[in-house]
Design a protein around this nucleic acid. Sequence first.
RNA 1: GUCCCCUUCGUCUAGCGGUUAGGACUCGGGAUUUUCAUUCCCGCAACAGGGGUUCGAUUCCCCUAGGGGACGCCA
Length: 525
Amino acid sequence: MDKVRTRFAPSPTGYLHVGGARTALFNYLYARARGGKFILRIEDTDQERSTEESYAQVLESLRWLGLNWDEGPEVGGPHGPYRQSQRLPIYREHAERLIQEGKAYPCFCTSEELEIKKAQREAMGLPAIYDGKCRHLSSQEVKKKIEAGFSYTIRFRTPPGKIVVHDLVQGQVYFDSSLIGDFIIIKSDGFPSYNYAVVVDDHLMEISHVIRGVQHLSNTPRQILLYQAFGWQEPKWAHVSEIVGSDHKKLSKRHGATPITAFRDLGYPARAFNNYMALLGWSPPDGQEFRTMEELCRIFDIERCSKSPAMFDVFDLEKAADQDLSALKTEELENYLFPKSKLNWLSNLHIRHCPEEQYLREVMPFVQKSDFVAKTHGEIANERLREILLALRVYLDYYRQILRYLSDFFVDFDEKTIDDFAEEIISSQNFLSIAETFHRLIKERGGEDFTAEAIKNIIAETGRLTGHKGKNLYMTLRIACTGKKEGLELPQYLALLGYQKVEETLRKTIALAKERWPAGSLGGV
RNA sequence: GUCCCCUUCGUCUAGCGGUUAGGACUCGGGAUUUUCAUUCCCGCAACAGGGGUUCGAUUCCCCUAGGGGACGCCA
């Protein structure tokens, strides 16, 4: 096998979720790691279920992830077309060949008939395989039935024998063709069946490695039989473990199978999501988990893929009860995210460790969703907004969280929202002296030079004048100036809030202290 | 029902006959810090069960249990 050519072959019958995306990722990474090509092929042979919306959504998701295909829809390539619905003559032609060689035959059994037989066999405890009724029809009989207008399928004449799948992940797996039966390769609507189309296309597209989920392992013997019937060389097989939801169940709408686009909308950087997915069923040789795409493209290897299923553990499914997570709006979905998932941890690292300009570019679309920013548009100098965003960077697990943190800079102090802790501080004896001293000092400067450095000095001076220091001083000022006990490092925080805002909050908290606790309480901090 | 696959801390996993069973996330504790976060230490926590093979099994084989997949004119 000289060149490595991998492919991702989704069927456009729904949205792309982690299951498929991870398979696509593995194919992409393997092709990149081996200097090969990554091909995208659309398996839209189910006329009932395939939709254009789904097709568009799948491509959109792959593009967002950055899993760019070297050949495939919309980019073309030497082995097109890359949508199976556009390759019908090719399948027909190859099926004819099999019929001529006696390796396939038309079958006139109706679906109803087959269903009844299948039920009967199941009732008797027999494997539910086709009984071969049309296997021995003479060419005259076939001709007559076709002329009479009976619709028919084409079945593969499965030869007896053992089949062994040599799998890069699963090892050698043995099957017996007597348990397979004559399967359909061309459906009565003239479209190819999955097992058949996959073989014809993988061969014609010169796919060297078929990397896909284990659920396809039991299809593989059928495909191998077809390779043998055509006299083609098999690709290398690699059936990777599947992904399950946090309840150990197969991924489904209620079990965490949200569309990939949901993660984009939540504001996870694509590289972070890829990094996380790469760790599901694969592990890096050195154990280092935080990785760039470049590194992943270099070090990925099928050898290190695990056989056991991996859990996609980012949603609190218990909390979500039986909700259809795929139907939720982004802000609702956010409520079911585990705050401490590995995805969040990785994503936070990716957000913190990218160049500033890239971070700013990526966070901006979410910033623009903020009502506060929209309302105060023009009031915040770009430079200040930039500083605020950079200061907030360390807190973000995904970009949408910026909305939450941004509110700290734009919401006015409201005494109704203060908590017990803040109340305790405000009511303490020290509060007024510290707050008023600081208030006086900044007013004397009239907002001139309201930088972090200057504020630090003013805080120090406040400390000298009032005789307080450390936590006592800082926490009191924090509550006095912001009304909250959490936030950025204080001098920087106040500088970013701006003189006016700080001065205004200070006035309110001081007024509150005087009004509610005129004498100061007995509590000290 | 038949066939196939899977089972190491809560989670992702390393391990490929001899290890104090390692790492990461989470969690608990501590240090640093004016708070939260960060960072840095420390700690809790696992080989599903039972038989073999072997001087020695997490590792190899068999059985049981549990989970998953396939058996479609779905992919």
